[in-house]
Design a protein around this nucleic acid. Structure first.
Lengths: 317, 317
DNA sequence: TATTTTTATCGAAAATTTCTATAAAAATGA
DNA sequence: TCATTTTTATAGAAATTTTCGATAAAAATA
């Protein structure tokens, strides 16, 4: 059994087609067919059911593929280990970002980073927090950007910045006339939230719980994007909370509906998260310093007391 | 990079000698030398420092070896997965056993098992509970026999038997004349115990704690074997507790010093422990049924109320 | 310094992987 | 249904890789 054979198996498992898989592996179809046959002979099992179209994995084939992924993954890491030791900043680098951070943060650092580290092949993926944790742990992501603290075993967190929440209050709302707003002013039943799984929502709910005024009311109107929430709020369906960076993109007339919170301001902690093994620590540090550089100009609320929703934790940002 | 090359690296790392490593791999020394050079060329690092005698791993070499172990381990599992699917009972099977179970249980089932499953290459290792958990999780053991419950993530437990504790009371002790003994009769300060790390000791301490009369006294006399404890007890240094199976091997005159407990009897739960992935479930079941068969005759206290020390759990054994 | 032990290098032999060409089988479409 | 297309398997040759035996070079030992 060779690692190459396992690669070939994974390619066929993915594309369900020997010819296509061979192309992706940059070999001819007979080469790939023979190598897979050799492996099947050695293990004395059929990995693929070739009678089905498209080709299917056999029961045992599924288990073999799953283990083959492990092996190929682990063997790819050898290269990473060597790069790490050499301090080489380059190679494939997979970054996971949560949806509520992606559109605002990514454009701020992307160009900067790829110019500074041209040898890094950056792969950005959007996932929710749960998926991000899973992928960091199984090695499908090298690093992630998400709301913290997560306090997950084997994962390390480095805070990038604290992003305050800003209330978006439509004109007909009773709080519209206030210049600054307090958390307790908000009617929790009418806060519009993001759908489950988005950590930003978790953040807000925890915040409310921590303030001791969280009621178990069901929020029937939930959306996956702030754009929708803003429109719903404008329709008079309630208020919503926006992370500060999102408010920068609002239309001028919508910006008039923003109300900052009184101190301690609710904020979310946004961090770099990565496996404790720190396999790509040099690239991670490169990413951290790039983001730190661009964020400094954008979030200028230094030394203001804030309160982080996920941990009711006070800090200075 | 090939799995074979990684095997070769591991062999040299183990034997610190190319010639010897080549022998163990059943290839000639030039073959092994060249393959390792090829890998070093591909990774562009030196794995071994050949200037030192005996040969040493470089810093990066250590990391590569550690990862190579992973990869080789994971690739060996492919064979296990196939065997598992086929229901084949054979191949390498590593069993870990704690020291306080090893000498009594192993002789009872070993011959029986190897006769019944001649294709299994049984490898027995003695480790303490902590080490066993580690090795089950990293794949160095297929199954283990230890005192339970452990309640470890990713490990499954199947109870083999409940083994009562029997008090060993020297003649000069105030409890010697009792025919049956109660847990509360024992003077905790003078119970002789096994040294730390042996789960049997943990078992007794928990038992005492559960009975609510555990004092934080330091036990200055601690030993690694029951034989020593018995001798110490005979010297008048206190009493000790023995697992039932150990009492069967005592000399006749020492058996006179044994006192069984009143119900509910203190007992330890001895279980098979294995990864939830159940890679070798057929062999594990074969082992379980073999042990169950021989233990039935040995521990004949069925339907007697017992109390298990690790969980203050009552059950019938 | 001679001897032994150990590792590296060389060229040939053996084994393997891959390729091209083509056959066989299956799916598609008129 | 039958020709056409698509897909996989097979065969033999070429290329590559792995291994070996012989031996050189280097290091350790006596």
């Amino acid at each position: 059994m060779t690692i190459t054979q396992l690669y070939y198996v994974l390619a066929v498992a993915e594309h369900k087609n020997f010819t296509l898989a061979a192309e992706k592996c940059f070999v001819t179809q007979p080469t790939l067919s023979m190598q897979i046959q050799k492996l099947e002979d050695e293990l004395e099992v059929l990995i693929f059911d070739r009678s089905k179209k498209p080709i299917q994995l056999t029961e045992i084939g599924q288990k073999i593929v799953s283990q083959a992924k492990n092996i190929v993954n682990e063997s790819d890491r050898i290269k990473d280990i060597v790069d790490q030791q050499k301090g080489f900043i380059g190679g494939e680098f997979k970054v996971g970002i949560i949806p509520t951070v992606m559109p605002t943060l990514l454009p701020m650092f992307l160009t900067n980073f790829v110019n500074r580290y041209p040898k890094v092949n950056l792969i950005i993926e959007e996932h929710n927090t749960e998926e991000i944790i899973k992928r960091l742990k199984n090695g499908h992501l090298d690093v992630a950007i998400a709301a913290t603290p997560l306090e997950e075993d084997n994962l390390k967190e480095i805070v990038l910045y604290y992003e305050p929440f800003v209330a978006y209050i439509p004109e007909n709302n009773r709080n519209f006339d206030k210049t600054e707003i307090d958390i307790n002013d908000l009617d929790l039943d009418s806060i519009l939230l993001l759908q489950d799984g988005h950590c930003f929502r978790d953040g807000i709910l925890n915040l409310c719980k921590n303030k001791g005024n969280f009621t178990d009311t069901k929020f029937h109107i939930e959306s996956g994007s702030f754009e929708t929430l803003i429109k719903l709020a404008d329709e008079g369906l309630g208020t919503t909370l926006l992370p500060y960076l999102h408010t920068l993109d609002l239309k001028e007339k919508d910006k008039l509906k923003l109300r900052h919170f009184k101190e301690p301001r609710p904020a979310r902690e946004v961090s770099l998260i990565f496996p404790k093994s720190e396999l790509k620590s040099h690239i991670i540090e490169a990413l951290r310093s790039t983001i730190a550089g661009v964020i400094k100009g954008a979030i200028a609320f230094h030394n203001v007391e804030i309160i982080s929703p996920l941990k009711n934790k006070k800090g200075v940002y």
